[in-house]
């Protein structure tokens, strides 16, 4: 984070706006909002330096509920607006809130370019695999064959995986979490905030009205340990109750294998160590087929590279140093001129 200004101690309450929250009762968005509001005071950024920018959709209502600056823009375009804000004032801490439709369908282009440029933004993509605000059509992350109002015989689209997409766009930070796992989600929000550059956090979020239970197979507490893997940098890729299962690489086919420690002589030595800076591993982890493999959660990928807004500022400073403050009179008189008396 760029703003390490000693701020008065704020609490979660200080980040709640005076607006009534209008998501459907039971929506996963409530949990995400509560966790964001919980994490905010820890970050030490004064409220006036925080801007929440969103596009259109259920998730994009988010800025109205944060007592910070907020801009609810148009469908899909929030990354571009956020980029303009950062270009104008890199001192601001900008959070972008988007969804699977907003960020990957109508706004896929902007999200791609914002990620590859490494604009210093914290991007939260709420993935509920459905269009909620327009009342239940399939989204670009809905599974093939999804039956919805607009696909009564099943959708004929293959889905895109948001984290895989982000890695493909050369994002410098890609993480994944779940709406209901407060401990993990707050940890991921902290990491997202701490990363300088375009930080992309995909959050599996349940839409209890139009796509209820989409993630139950691994989101439910009883399944979580066996069906998800919490990746941690430098730690072995172990999962399951008592960490008895793990991921190893088949070096002949360069593919992952889910194995059980002790079975067929498998030892912990063979288990892969997670390396956040390895884009190939990040890609493999992001798109492990469920349920043969667990769903990877955590920071899949994180590297440092120059930020877009930082480079803009550096170029401006270099130009000022080289040319001095722009002189309009000299500009207008540059090149061939002549006098008429």
């Amino acid at each position: 984070m760029s703003n390490v200004v000693p701020a008065p101690k704020l609490t979660r309450k200080d980040f709640e706006s005076d607006q009534d929250v209008r998501w459907c009762p039971g929506c996963g968005d409530y949990s995400i909002l509560a966790n964001v509001q919980r994490v905010m005071p820890e970050l030490g950024v004064p409220r006036e330096k925080l801007v929440f920018v969103s596009g259109i959709g259920c998730s994009s209502r988010f800025p109205y509920y944060m007592n910070t600056y907020g801009f609810h823009t148009i469908h899909g375009r929030a990354p571009a607006v956020a980029m303009g804000i950062k270009a104008a004032n890199p001192d601001l801490t900008v959070w972008l809130v988007t969804g699977d439709g907003d960020g990957l369908s109508i706004g896929g282009n902007h999200l791609m370019h914002c990620l590859r440029r490494n604009v210093d933004l914290n991007i939260l993509l709420f993935n509920n695999r459905i269009y909620g605000l327009t009342k239940g059509q399939y989204s670009p992350t809905s599974e093939f064959g999804k039956i919805t109002k607009s696909s009564p015989t099943g959708s004929v689209d293959f889905p895109v995986d948001p984290s895989t997409f982000a890695i493909g766009c050369s994002a410098s930070f890609v993480a994944r979490s779940i709406d209901v796992d407060a401990t993990h989600l707050t940890e991921m929000l902290r990491r997202t905030a701490a990363h300088k550059g375009a930080s992309f956090l995909e959050i599996y979020q349940n839409c209890n009205v139009f796509n209820d239970g989409a993630f139950d197979a691994f989101r439910e507490k009883v399944h979580r340990d066996d069906r998800t893997i919490r990746v941690q940098h430098g730690k072995p890729l172990l999962f399951g109750k008592d960490n008895t299962r793990g991921l190893r690489i088949d070096s002949r086919t360069l593919s992952l294998e889910a194995v059980t420690l002790g079975e067929n002589g498998v030892t912990e030595q063979e288990i892969l160590l997670h390396d956040e800076t390895n884009p190939t591993l990040a890609y493999m982890l992001a798109r492990m087929p469920f349920p043969d493999f667990p769903v990877a959660l955590g920071v899949l990928y994180a590297v440092d590279k120059p930020t877009y807004d930082g480079t803009l500022t550096a170029q401006r400073d270099a130009s000022l140093k080289k040319n001095g403050q722009g002189d309009l009179h000299a500009l207008l008189h540059s090149g061939n001129t002549w006098q008429v008396s």
């Binding site: 571009a80 607006v81 980029m83 950062k86 104008a88 282009n109 902007h110």
Partner: peptide, 14 residues
């Protein structure tokens, strides 16, 4: 679209 949106974002930021 991005061109105008980022210009608008810049205006919003002053």
């Amino acid at each position: 679209i991005a061109a105008i949106c980022l210009a608008l974002g810049a205006s919003y930021a002053g």
